[in-house]
Amino acid sequence: MTSFLDPLISFVSAHPWLAYLTLFLAALLEAVPVVGSVIPGSTIILALSALVPGGELALPWVLLAAGLGAVLGDGTAYWIGYRQQREILTTWPLTNYPRVVEQSESFFHRFGTWAVFFARFVPPIRAFVPVTAGALGMPPAKFYAVNIPAILVWAPAHVLPGVLAVSALHEYAGLHHHVHVGKHIWMLTVVGFAIALGLAIWTVRRRHGSGVAAKPRA
């Protein structure tokens, strides 16, 4: 099993910028309507965060990459909705997901401004609420006043579990002369958990998506 992680760790150690770029893109694409419903961004972030305790990646840069990606992704979706207004909600590809769009609107009407905050933690509407907020005319200042604090909470919530899990398992093992092997085992455990979590989320999204496709016209 360690042979699987050895090349990954070596590659990330030699090219950490690529890992940070992957984190950035994972967070960005997860915030894009439709695309965010199929990209396992949270899984990628959790898996790569497991490389922080071993020193392959730096925690501040991991948080920054994930945070900036989320800000750009949410902001782009919001501005598209803000400029096109409600027309965007009835335009392809959103027309293929009428139920999620409807749920996003209901979520927004129910929680108001706070919907932007709460949606950050609720897939799959996380990828639809920013564009919905813009389409419904939410002022930019109000959107960013809630969106940025939400991302400041969301980023650590996605990164720290992987970091803390690996760190705690290292400490629990307490085998200093087997740190190298132990690190790989614990990292493999966390990565395996991340993959399992990603598959579970993907399955839920697929089930959700199968019921939201637009019905063919008679």
Rank of each mutant, 00 (worst) to 15 (best):
T76I: 15
T76F: 15
A77K: 09
Y78S: 02
Y78H: 04
Y78L: 01
Y78V: 01
I80Y: 15
G81M: 09
Y82F: 13
Y82P: 00
R83M: 06
R83N: 04
R83Q: 06
Q84P: 00
Q84G: 00
R86W: 04
R86K: 09
I88W: 05
I88Y: 03
T90D: 12
T90Q: 13
T91S: 08
T91P: 00
T91M: 03
W92F: 11
W92P: 08
P93T: 02
P93S: 02
P93N: 05
L94Q: 03
L94K: 01
L94Y: 04
T95G: 01
T95K: 04
V101Y: 03
V101T: 06
V101D: 04
E102V: 00
E102S: 11
Q103C: 04
S104D: 03
E105N: 03
E105D: 00
E105G: 00
S106W: 13
S106N: 11
F107S: 13
F107P: 10
H109S: 13
H109N: 13
H109M: 10
R110F: 10
F111A: 10
G112M: 11
T113L: 15
T113A: 14
W114V: 02
W114F: 09
A115N: 02
A115T: 02
F117S: 09
F118A: 13
F118D: 07
A119M: 06
A119I: 09
A119W: 01
R120Y: 14
R120G: 15
F121I: 13
V122L: 08
I125N: 07
I125H: 05
R126Y: 05
A127C: 14
V129N: 03
P130S: 04
T132N: 04
A133E: 06
G134A: 06
G134N: 09
A135E: 03
A135T: 05
L136Q: 12
L136I: 00
L136N: 01
P139Q: 08
A141S: 01
A141V: 00
K142A: 10
K142L: 11
F143E: 01
F143C: 01
F143T: 02
A145R: 14
A145P: 04
A145W: 12
I148F: 14
I148M: 11
P149Y: 11
P149S: 08
I151F: 02
I151P: 01
I151K: 01
I151L: 04
V153I: 13
V153L: 14
W154K: 12
W154N: 07
A155Q: 13
A155C: 11
P156A: 10
H158T: 07
H158G: 04
H158A: 03
V159T: 08
V159N: 06
V159K: 07
L160Q: 15
P161I: 06
P161L: 09
G162W: 02
V163F: 15
V163Q: 09
V166H: 05
V166A: 07
S167V: 08
S167T: 15
A168T: 11
L169G: 13
L169C: 10
L169W: 14
H170R: 12
E171A: 12
A173Q: 12
A173K: 03
G174D: 08
G174T: 10
L175W: 15
